[in-house]
Nucleic acid binder design. Structure first.
Lengths: 188, 188
DNA sequence: GTCTATAGATCGATAGAC
DNA sequence: GTCTATCGATCTATAGAC
């Protein structure tokens, strides 16, 4: 049962950035403490199970953010094409226009992959399903919608990797624009 | 100056798989030793600078592999569209049809990113440049070719992430097929 | 060239003062 | 609730026997 509390909640985005920039193994407790301004004692007070619980809290918050800002709109919007456009805007915002690394990609290796495979898989499965649904309602055939959804999400995952490797955030924006145009036409 | 030798060269692909599966921080010397069947002494004999030199050797071999199997063909082939199709075949082979993680994505976080940013950037820049060239020669306008190249490479980076997260290698193959069709038409 | 032993540093986690 | 002190484990890297 996770603890709740304003102080604890405020640390989660800070912890998230450390995991993003250093990976799970690389995010040491001194590093996490320095970023949050808390000592180890305080961190263990908020997260009794240590790093594993910190990352779980981070993933939970990411999940909530996407549920509120992306999935809910994709599912419920009266105009599915408009919802997909909003998804691209939210994603661009989330990845800081290509300057922010993808936490999920960072969790790919190591123990973290094994321990968090379930939540990560659920997150992507939900994204694929809701995007496929919106594309279907916007008039695409089922099989085409599913394949396009996966292609778009793969592109969204790969674009920050390429943009950061090239040190060219613009590469992210242009790839997003192309994916958007391919799914629901040019930006509204 | 890197050492050379058959025994050293044979360890490099093994080291590569460990880095892929565990990341740079997670690939401990006991793990690397277990995978190669060598003790720490032997590893340091081959790679006096330790893990950093091991990863440099791995990246160098990946670079050579792409240079020989992908970039050279993209640059020199008389039929550029055919060369792009060959690129997709090579990439599918390289990523073991979506079951293999991308080492570059794994290096995104941590010290490894800072230390190897130069080679990683050069690798992607070369890929973008050679693919853009081939697409241009196949008849696309310069700006379109450059943007499409980045979109394709971003998709190639993201597809293994999605496929592995969903535990669905087929998602990789289908995304590759869509990207291929978009650039040079359906498989020959 | 390959091994074992070990140094020196850092890690995650705990205990206990305040 | 936040801190410091500290434990035991693990890590990278080195030294030296064979």
């Amino acid at each position: 049962m996770p603890k709740v509390g304003a102080a604890r909640m405020e640390t989660i985005p800070v912890l998230a950035e450390v995991f993003r920039e250093h990976g799970y193994e690389g995010a040491s407790l001194p590093l996490l403490g320095k970023a949050t301004g808390l000592g180890k004692g305080s961190l263990y007070n908020f997260f009794p199970n240590g790093k594993e619980e910190m990352l779980a809290a981070v993933l939970g918050e990411i999940d909530d953010w996407f549920e509120s800002n992306v999935f809910a709109t994709l599912r419920g919007a009266p105009d599915p094409a408009c919802a997909v456009r909003a998804m691209f805007d939210s994603v661009d915002d989330y990845f800081h226009s290509g300057r922010r690394a993808c936490l999920i990609g960072v969790l790919a290796p190591g123990d973290a992959r094994d321990r968090f495979a379930g939540p990560v898989r659920a997150y992507f499965a939900r994204w694929v399903a809701t995007l496929t649904g919106a594309l279907t309602r916007s008039g695409r055939a089922d099989a085409d919608a599913a394949a396009l959804a996966k292609e778009v999400i793969a592109g969204i995952q790969g674009a920050p990797i390429l943009a950061r490797a090239l040190d060219d955030p613009d590469a992210f924006g242009r790839t997003m624009a192309r994916l958007r145009a391919k799914t629901v036409g040019p930006a509204s």
